[in-house]
Nucleic acid binder design. Structure first.
Lengths: 335, 335
DNA sequence: CACTTTGACTAGAGCGCTCTAGTAGTCCAG
DNA sequence: CTGGACTACTAGAGCGCTCTAGTCAAAGTG
């Protein structure tokens, strides 16, 4: 910086002014400084600038490395933060690097707010964190008053799925359950509510999970049901649905002719023409936007790090995307 | 820090000593400082500490957000960097945030070295980058002398695949090509070499790509081949292979009875029992380790940012993993 | 004409650390 | 009792910025 200032024949302060893009420099000088910087291949040190500024305007984000849907969310987070004038600092969660470690590095970097994407952090940790700075839990509903929750209306999503299947005439609809995964409890509840609307529909809950493997296992259980077999299933998520479809097809069943399947998330693969999975779309862009809004509003409203008294956060509505994995049930089972 | 020092009744310098874990403090004082820090919920500001230290010991990593295999690599990068005494700074590449933007933020943070995972950065940018600091291109072979390359021996991988298929008796073996994807040229070459070993084997190259969708398209082209149809295919990667399998199965062909398929990468799904894809495994752990080694060795050897005269980097050998998507060709086509 | 105003620029303190140089105090050899 | 050789600790400059409080000249005002 010193060198740039010297080369441009100005003070260091002036260089700072130019690079921050604030007023206080003539166009001509501005040009000279930029030119000198380019010649010296100088670029401001963001660490030092944040140190000097007092604020960091950094948002810390933890996410599961290699998780497709988290990836989509990150994309949205990046652009939303950018337009809100914040920077994103990523901290990945891996098998050897848990949520706490990920959060710790973000705190040590002095992030002003945290977005935890599908984090499995313990309640006590969450509470403590939320007391210190604005925190939003993305995709995972938590009850702690200290953290905002941004999530899809999971229950509504499964109700939509069930209603769609009922509308096609299905009487027996199974759930491939998500167990303890984030949002699973809500989806289970939505499934139950969806069934109760018309009395006489039995609940059939099979153990599912997050991955194709879980879906495949559920399919094995499903096939073992024999005559009592449901004509449709709603899966915890798309990957689970895809694993299920794979296995039932290998067993000779046709989808959707013999069994209808609906997923959740609307991951990229669900839309591929050879897959064409009917699913409940989570809006990654909206989710990211709401998360950034929730944390930046706390930051910008100067209510201080204690957080406002009103819990912020948002529930974004999912949308049913009908493709070709669902149809009316076989041989006049309808109504 | 000031407060902690006051509370523990020592100087700020002493607090610094304790937190850096260097000698120069008695055990008793050390305990008092740590205690005081805990009470005040103090944790050192890593930005300031790196500023003061002169060195940052940070490794910048760019990666494609939501890419499963990149995810596996990140995991390895984290732990390797940790044991080499470096910290990882992530910078995601998304549709709205290209490689250059990702790299720029890393440079502004003053990372000392860069690991570009499957980066699509232009040659001129790569050269300029490599002139300034140690850079390794992971998974993508580039010719620039300024950057080290750590990659799987892609050509060998495809040769293994082809040899395996030939060993099973396949005469016509197609390649689902990766086009311009990183490593695709090498794999194509390996495929050709593999075929040339026994004369009379025709090359059949179908357009493939990185995703299931590309594999599905290739399958359509494959099915259209009719009587001339190969009895086996080697795909650019697992996702492509999986898409291919999906579509040929839907068309009534059996895998492996009617057509054998081998993938590349060995992603998690390839190992699922209902998938059981024969594939060429890339060793994510080794790749990550080599990348970290390449860049830290340049850093630690104090050869300066100019880099040593000998290009570093590594080629790690892939391994064929035989599962159940490959078998002998149908009706005595063998030999 | 003396006066405020405005725009362009600078000096220098401060951000939260690290680290060199140096000050005590203790222990022991000669 | 003097003088190393340690160990435990501290003062204070420095890292590369930001930003407040200024200076100074030119332009506008009545």
């Amino acid at each position: 910086m010193e060198d740039v200032a010297a080369r441009a024949g100005v003070s260091r302060a002036l260089v700072s002014i130019v690079f921050r893009g604030v007023t206080g420099a003539s166009d001509e000088t501005r040009g000279r400084v930029l030119e000198a910087a380019r010649e010296l291949d100088y670029r401001p040190d963001t660490r030092a600038s944040r140190l000097g500024r007092g604020r960091t305007r950094m948002l810390g984000v933890t996410f599961a490395v290699g998780h497709a849907f988290h990836g989509e969310i990150l994309g949205s987070l990046y652009s939303e933060a950018d337009s809100a004038g914040y920077e994103i600092v990523l901290s990945g969660v891996t098998p050897v690097r848990d949520d706490r470690a990920a959060v710790d590095t973000l705190l040590a970097e002095r992030c002003e707010g945290l977005v935890l994407v599908g984090s499995g952090l313990a309640s006590t940790d969450l509470r403590r964190l939320g007391d210190g700075l604005p925190v939003v839990s993305l995709l995972r509903p938590v009850r702690e008053a200290q953290v905002d929750v941004v999530r899809t209306d999971d229950a509504l999503g499964l109700r939509l799925a069930v209603e769609h299947l009922r509308g096609l005439g299905h009487q027996r609809i199974a759930l491939l359950d998500g167990g303890r995964a984030p949002g699973a409890a809500e989806r289970r509840q939505g499934y139950r509510r969806g069934l109760r609307v018309s009395p006489g529909l039995d609940e059939v809950v099979l153990d599912g999970g997050l991955t194709e493997l879980d879906g495949a296992r559920a399919a094995t259980a499903f096939l073992a049901l024999g005559g009592e077999r449901p004509s449709a299933v709603a899966a915890f998520n798309d990957r689970c649905a895809l694993g299920f479809v794979d296995v039932v097809r290998q067993a000779g069943l046709r989808v959707p002719e013999d069994v209808s399947v609906v997923g959740f998330d609307d991951i990229e693969q669900a839309a591929y023409p050879h897959v064409a999975l009917t699913t409940v779309r989570q809006d990654a862009a909206r989710l990211g936007a709401e998360a950034v809004r929730a944390v930046t509003s706390r930051l910008d409203d100067a209510t201080g790090p204690e957080g406002g008294p009103t819990p912020d956060g948002a529930v974004v509505e999912p949308e049913l995307v009908v493709r070709r994995s669902t149809a009316a049930p076989p041989h006049g089972e309808a109504s």
